[in-house]
Amino acid sequence: MYTALVQQFKDAQLKAAGAYLEVRAAETALFPSDERHCYRAVETRADYRTDRELSDFCDRLSHVLVKEAIHRFSPPGGRLEIHGQKELKNASVDIRGALEAGKCPDFDAFWSHLERTFSGDAGKRIGLIQAAKLIIDGFGIRPNSEIKRTSSAIVLEARIWSEPCHRSSLRKATYHSQSTAAGLTRGLAAFAAHAGFDALASVLKHGRLVDYEFETREKVSFQGLDVAMFNEKWQFKFSHQVGDALSLFISEFGADYLATRDRY
Rank of each mutant, 00 (worst) to 15 (best):
E35Q: 11
R36W: 11
K67I: 00
E22T: 15
R72G: 00
D59Q: 12
E27P: 02
L65M: 04
S55W: 06
A25E: 10
C38A: 12
A17W: 09
Y20S: 03
V64A: 08
R40I: 02
E35A: 13
C58L: 06
D56G: 00
R72Y: 07
A69G: 07
V42N: 01
F31R: 12
D59E: 13
A25K: 14
L21D: 12
E53R: 00
R40M: 07
Y20N: 00
H63S: 12
R24Y: 15
S74R: 04
C38T: 11
E22I: 15
V66D: 00
A41V: 07
Y20M: 05
F31P: 11
Y39Q: 15
L61A: 10
L65I: 02
R45G: 03
A46M: 07
P32E: 06
L30I: 07
G18I: 12
V23Y: 12
R36T: 11
H71Y: 13
L30S: 12
L65V: 07
A26V: 09
R45F: 10
F73Y: 14
D51T: 08
I70V: 11
D56V: 08
D51Q: 05
V23H: 02
S62W: 00
R52N: 03
H63R: 08
Y48C: 13
F57L: 02
A46S: 15
R24H: 10
V23P: 00
T50E: 03
R45E: 04
A29D: 15
D51I: 03
Y20V: 14
L54P: 02
Y39F: 15
K67M: 07
R60Q: 14
Y20K: 07
V66F: 01
Y48K: 10
R45D: 02
H37D: 03
R36C: 10
R60K: 13
F31T: 11
H63E: 12
R60M: 09
L21R: 12
H63C: 03
T44Y: 04
L30R: 15
E43D: 06
L54F: 02
R40D: 09
V66Y: 06
R45P: 05
L65S: 04
C58I: 05
R52H: 11
